[in-house]
Design a protein around this nucleic acid. Structure first.
Lengths: 154, 154
DNA sequence: TGGTATTATTTTAAAATATACCAACACGCA
DNA sequence: TGCGTGTTGGTATATTTTAAAATAATACCA
């Protein structure tokens, strides 16, 4: 099947499929296609970019096609939304509950997901000072990734 | 002039005006009106809600009118954008350089801006482990504010 | 295997958010 | 006064997201 995916991503694809089946929700062919498109990206990707790619293999695809699939995955935690760019990214370690933070390179577009308990807890502690009870966190850093910083020393 | 603003907000309004004049940029009547609308809100407010309010006193207002004013204030740091809701909020302590985090109450809509160096630095430290150089941070917590949590004990 | 309930998909449409572009005007300065 | 820059006006359009209704597919149970 997923010949366009690297081996590690194919593993993730199968893990996602199993995850859905375990939960009793359906990993349909359409959802599979959307998920595969998401997996192909190291950057995060916009809904309409997904749509363009999807249309190549699924002529009937329309905006709601993509958004419904995205909603499905977002709900399950298999995909995250990057709020500051209105884009989406497959999560590489779903299943386990974990905090989410993104490092977004404004030079190459790459989006790295990190998962720091410390960051999450620091914000929680801070919120507690206002007696604010946090349900969800959106934490996104924009900047320059390792690759895009020259490695020269002087 | 600003009869609809409380005293503290009128102070802020004047501070913003002075801030612009000091910087040599123009705090025009149109911008003043948009800023006033922003100040009136404790919640954050969407661009089109601003537009609706602006139209009441400025018939010619169109979407670009609002976005231009918003861009102006965003650039100066007088207004922040809440990325997770596509809304905007006047900053209550511009001028001094400070980190920005938002506590967004999903019950009443209130948006509280906090400014924790600790949160900022914790994320920075975390990013450094990936050798990622942060330029800007988007940190937004959704949850329930103090007011909206019952105060009952049992 | 057939019936039924549920869930997914298709399709059309539109709402909500944001920008591009060009012309006209106004203000600050030479 | 005239020039240049910045601001506003106005039209149009792009982008992102959701609504709603009809149809189709699937799971599940008897």
């Amino acid at each position: 099947m997923n010949q366009t995916l690297s081996e590690s991503k194919e593993l993730l694809f199968n893990k996602a499929k199993d995850f859905c089946e375990d939960k009793g929700v359906r990993f349909t062919p359409l959802r599979a296609k959307v998920y595969q498109i998401l997996l192909q990206e190291d950057a995060s990707i916009g809904a309409y970019d997904i749509l363009d790619k999807l249309k190549l293999i699924e002529d009937s695809a329309k905006p709601p096609t993509v958004y419904r699939a995205l909603d499905f995955f977002l709900e399950l935690g298999l995909v995250h939304k990057v709020e500051s760019t209105n884009t989406f990214k497959a999560c590489h370690h779903f299943g386990c509950s974990h905090p989410v933070q993104f490092l977004i390179c404004d030079t190459c577009g790459d989006v790295k997901e990190i998962s720091s308990e410390g960051v999450k807890e620091t914000l929680e502690r801070q919120a507690l000072q206002s007696n604010f009870k946090i349900m969800t966190q959106t934490i996104e850093a924009h900047g320059i990734c390792n690759q895009c910083q020259g490695t020269g020393i002087s």
